[in-house]
Nucleic acid binder design. Sequence first.
DNA 1: TCCTATTAGTTGACTAATCAACTAATCTGG
DNA 2: CCAGATTAGTTGATTAGTCAACTAATAGGA
Lengths: 157, 157
Amino acid sequence: MEKRKSLIKAILDTYRISLSYISEGTSKYGIGRGQWYFFNRLLLGGDGLSQEQLSEEMVVDSAHTARAIKKLEDDGYIFRKADPSDGRKKKVYVTDKAVVIRDEYHQIYKELNKVLTTGFTPEEVELTRKLLYRMRDNIDEYVKTRARDQQQSKQDG
Amino acid sequence: MEKRKSLIKAILDTYRISLSYISEGTSKYGIGRGQWYFFNRLLLGGDGLSQEQLSEEMVVDSAHTARAIKKLEDDGYIFRKADPSDGRKKKVYVTDKAVVIRDEYHQIYKELNKVLTTGFTPEEVELTRKLLYRMRDNIDEYVKTRARDQQQSKQDG
DNA sequence: TCCTATTAGTTGACTAATCAACTAATCTGG
DNA sequence: CCAGATTAGTTGATTAGTCAACTAATAGGA
């Protein structure tokens, strides 16, 4: 890993430093490093997802989702409702307590975005976003395809 | 966090998925999710750093560095030598056991890089690298400046 | 229908990472 | 030189996240 050459090192650093920034901002709401992205998705991106959907979208284990969602529920930010059409599923919704802090909470991420892209032109910001999602989709596709192939070869014997 | 809009979400996803890819590759050496980046740095980027330098460069707590380095030491991949010029410091070096697997180990990251940048032109790869490090430096600078300011205002009363 | 396979969620055990408190060594100002 | 401050590293307690084993509900095919 030569210095300033590796893509994954830049991603790792940016993730770690951003996380310390975020958790400082969210800690006053009692929301920790393991919950902010769930809360974010539900409060700013829309609620009513099942835990399975959340796990898939957040790219984390369902065990972690269960515990993170429980913490947000205990803290009064979300509630869960059994899905009437499927007794296994629990759909997750934000409470009024969450809605009240929405704009204030959103600021943390708007500010982070501003810090990350300091000195970027609007075109550079958009370009960065596109390149990042292309990388994200590349590795996602690769890992999923490999998992499918392994599943297949197991079935084939 | 609107879908496919957020920079931090793309970074988070890419980090998580890449990590699962990496740990699958490194696990056969007994190197886990918490050690690969230290080992990478020492084996591919040069050894002889102190734990403090490693913590700074990897952007992790020194407590984690101590434990990760201890694990790599227990597994025989690295060794530590007291710095003769400063009795507090322990410099970290890779062992022969590590050097032997270098090329093979390096492949994991070369392959990851290839997967991440599938469909990228060489110019796009270079551009991505530059944009990522600019973001990394932006947030790093911001967090460090704020830490300094807080330190300052504490001293001033 | 009923038997099996799959899916959603939970729990326990483990590894990863942070924060705070501590020890020992070094540095610095008087 | 020496007393107080800083630095490097360790340890304990806690939170974050994964993996495996489990329960309960659903889906699907004979």
